[in-house]
Computed example of a mutant assay.
Amino acid sequence: MLIDDADRRILRHLLADSDLANADLAARAGVTPATCWRRVERMRAAGIIAVPVAVINWRALGYEVEVSLRFNLDKTEPRAFDEFLAAARDVPEVIAIETFLGRVDVRLNVIARDMAQYQQIYRTRILTLPHIADIEALMLIATIKDESALPL
């Protein structure tokens, strides 16, 4: 689906404030409310605008530690990826799972309230995941940029 300048304006304003009412969004984008609603619905139907989700600030809930774990899996087992990913999904402290082509097979982002809790999660939940050949841990110090916006 091709988008035009009006669609781009709508998307820019939605990225800046996803809670805007349709009338406010239309006014900021310079279109009528009816036009804005139709365009937003068309972009939703095309999959350009995904379902709105709540973004939870887990640090505000007391989680101070984030560790990115990079795994290489034992690829001699044909179901290694599927079984590892299924087990990783069941770890509540895993907030992101990503797979890669290259030197790293899978990355998990794990959160914990403090280092003691992280050690407990690591020993009892992470090390028990199936088919691990190697793990590398990277402790998050600071997030410099975390943005899903496109240059529209």
Rank of each mutant, 00 (worst) to 15 (best):
S148T: 15
I10C: 06
N72T: 08
T32R: 09
I111V: 13
I132S: 11
N72I: 04
L108P: 01
E41H: 00
Q119D: 12
D90A: 04
R9T: 12
K75P: 11
L2S: 15
T35E: 08
P52M: 10
I121L: 02
A21L: 15
R39G: 04
A16F: 12
Y118D: 02
R39N: 00
V53P: 05
I135W: 03
T32G: 01
E93I: 01
K75Y: 14
G102I: 02
M115S: 11
I48A: 00
A88Q: 13
V106R: 01
A23Y: 10
Y63V: 02
E93G: 08
A50M: 06
L108C: 00
A46F: 08
L138E: 11
A60P: 02
W37E: 15
R107H: 04
L101P: 01
P33N: 08
A21Y: 13
L101V: 13
I132R: 00
L150K: 06
A46D: 15
L152E: 06
D4I: 15
P78Q: 05
I56R: 08
M43S: 05
F81K: 01
R39V: 00
I141K: 10
R103D: 13
F100Q: 01
T124P: 01
G102F: 03
R79Q: 04
V94K: 10
N57M: 00
V104P: 09
Y122S: 13
I111Y: 07
A88G: 11
Q119T: 04
V55Y: 09
V40T: 02
E77K: 03
A34I: 15
D7F: 15
E93T: 05
C36D: 08
I132V: 05
M1I: 10
G62Q: 11
R39S: 07
P92Y: 04
K145H: 08
L85W: 08
A96N: 07
G62R: 09
E147K: 00
C36F: 03
R79F: 05
I49G: 08
A21C: 05
T143C: 00
L138R: 12
N109S: 13
V110S: 01
L108F: 00
C36P: 13
E93N: 13
K145S: 07
A50R: 09
S148P: 12
R125C: 00
I144A: 09
D146C: 14
L69S: 05
D19N: 10
I135V: 03
